[in-house]
Design a protein around this nucleic acid. Structure first.
Length: 493
RNA sequence: GGCAUCGUGGCCGAGUGGCUAGGCACAGCUCUGCAAAAGCUUGUACAGCGGUUCGAAUCCGCUCGAUGCCUCCA
């Protein structure tokens, strides 16, 4: 039997603001769409958090035995700098700045994006479509929206008529906004706008003669609006209505709101059953953002080359740090917090390494079955990774007790514990053991064992000056010795 | 100004009507030649003020503060 039939999951749906029982549209199958990056610069850590959160969700679905189609797009066209009529495409702007082809910009930052996510151990999505690869689909949707009377053509551009739409539908249901309020609060700055209403958004923009990124359409040469690509690609690969749509909290309005409007205006259906939003990562209490410069790049954390943190942190530690907070909470990055996470991470990894070597007994002091279910309960409650991790640390304590001979574990329970720990840490949380990833670790271990032997001889001879020298100098090199009941063990940092 | 979210012990971070996660740091103890590691013990925190309730950090109201969105952002 598939695990998902036994483990009942609840998810927080942004559309209703409530935790709801998760029931996929087609039993055993899940369609999930997550808004990917606009590839006009390097991904910063805040971007990574969102993708990591949905990676964890993707992994848990797979762990439960669901067949998941996970679509995450690459925005390589259509993302405007601002809403003004002469607004520039972000990628085209960058291309002009660096004096290269727009597609070179796209290629460069797409490669960076993939490399970075790989470092953080994210699984690739099932499909990773690009906006430029789906121009035809986008044009088709625009045609439908025009046909249904919810869009209008002006001077080679097409705009979505929000006011008209709101007469028969509700614009703002996801973000909790009312169109009347939005209109009342509009700053009247767009004097010569070709839009009927400031709330209207572009489905298709006319390309000026010097604009490089352009495609033919029934309305002339141009390029698609940003909100439209997600509607086109999610519909194509997941259908008119699918299970989960994810993205950063900052995309809730207007991006996701517009997606809902586009779907309802074209095919008449609400596109998504469960909307999931990941919260922001802050730095110094402020949102990380490319546009304000308040950000840190993953490579800077791993290399330690930055002015914010006292030392480098591995990708696994950063991932563990992120998983210690719930994905819907704001998380603030700081050196203290990362240091605390690093220590916890190392303790967890050490227990995980010791676990298979543990002695077994006829009986167990630890109810592994009950503990295992607690881990599932945590994840079933809207992917509560902090609670899951607290449960993992309960197991760490029991592992250490068994290691010291203070508690017992049966063979069967030990095996179950090994399986469960590995499943949650590696498969679900996606946390790898990077504590000893050296290629030379075999040699290194041998050398340390040799020194331990020499030290033990010195200790037997009560030559503590020598034994302490070995221990302290190894410690200075990052090799920590631990004298236990069954001899000396060590960790390498 | 509008909409939304949030304010938890030294730090990070769960919880959301009674049973008061977890990590890190600190202190004491056990173990140890000494350390380290590990284990045990200790912290009675929920912005403020009212209200509902037998009972609130958790619900309601107000005040203060922070953040996000309202123009591009994961």
């Amino acid at each position: 039997m598939q695990l998902y039939k036994k483990q009942k999951l609840k998810v927080h749906n942004s559309l209703t603001g409530k935790k709801e029982d998760f029931v996929p549209i087609n039993e055993g199958h899940i369609g999930m769409y997550v808004c990917g990056p606009t590839v006009y610069s390097f991904v910063h850590l805040g971007n990574c958090r969102t993708f990591m959160s949905f990676d964890m969700i993707f992994r848990y679905f797979k762990h439960l035995g669901f067949k998941v189609r996970y679509v995450r797009n690459i925005t390589d066209a259509g993302h405007l700098e601002n809403d003004a009529d002469e607004g520039e495409d972000k990628i085209a702007k960058k291309a002009k700045l660096e004096q290269i082809e727009p597609m070179e910009v796209v290629q460069r930052y797409t490669v960076d994006f993939h490399n970075t996510l790989q470092q953080f151990n994210l699984l690739p999505p099932s499909i990773e479509p690009t906006a430029t690869g789906h121009i035809i689909e986008q044009i088709e949707i625009i045609k439908e929206i025009i046909e249904n009377g919810f869009a209008y053509v002006v001077n080679g551009s097409v705009y979505f008529d929000v006011v008209k739409f709101n007469e028969s539908h509700t614009y703002g249901k996801l973000s909790g906004r009312k169109l009347e309020d939005m209109i009342a609060n509009t700053r009247e700055l767009t004097a010569q706008s070709e839009k009927r209403n400031p709330q209207d958004f572009a489905l298709w923009k006319k390309a000026e003669p010097q604009h490089i990124m352009r495609w033919p359409s029934p309305w002339g040469d141009g390029f698609p609006g940003w909100h439209l690509e997600c509607t086109a690609m999610s519909t194509k690969y997941l259908g008119e209505t699918f299970d989960i749509h994810g993205g950063g909290m900052d995309l809730k309005f207007p991006h996701h709101e517009c997606e809902i409007a586009q779907s309802e205006a074209s095919c008449g259906k609400s596109p998504v059953k469960y909307w999931l939003h990941a919260n922001m990562l802050t730095l110094n209490g402020k949102k990380m953002s490319k546009s304000t410069g308040n950000n840190i790049y993953p490579s800077e954390i791993i290399s330690g080359e930055n002015n914010i943190l006292s030392k480098p942190y591995s990708a696994a530690v950063v991932r563990f740090f992120m998983m210690q907070a719930h994905y819907t909470s704001i998380l603030d990055l700081s050196d203290d917090a990362l240091q605390a996470s690093e220590k916890g991470y190392l303790r967890l990894m050490e227990a995980l390494e010791n676990l298979p070597k543990l002695p077994t007994s006829a009986t167990s002091d630890f109810d592994v079955q009950a503990w295992r279910q607690k881990c599932y309960d945590a994840m079933n409650d809207d992917f509560n990774t902090p609670i899951l991790i607290s449960n993992l640390f309960d197991a760490v304590k029991r592992i250490n007790l068994v290691k010291e001979g203070k508690e017992t574990l049966s063979e069967a329970d030990k095996n179950l514990l090994v399986d469960t720990m590995s499943a949650f840490i590696h498969d679900v949380l996606g946390i790898e053991n990077q504590a000893h990833s050296d290629d030379n670790s075999q040699t290194l271990n041998g050398i340390v064992e040799l020194l331990i032997g020499l030290r033990n001889e010195a200790r037997a001879n009560k030559d503590f000056a020598t034994s302490d020298k070995i221990r302290d100098e190894l410690n200075a090199l990052g090799v920590q010795l631990k004298d236990g009941k069954d001899g000396t063990s060590f960790t390498i940092n």
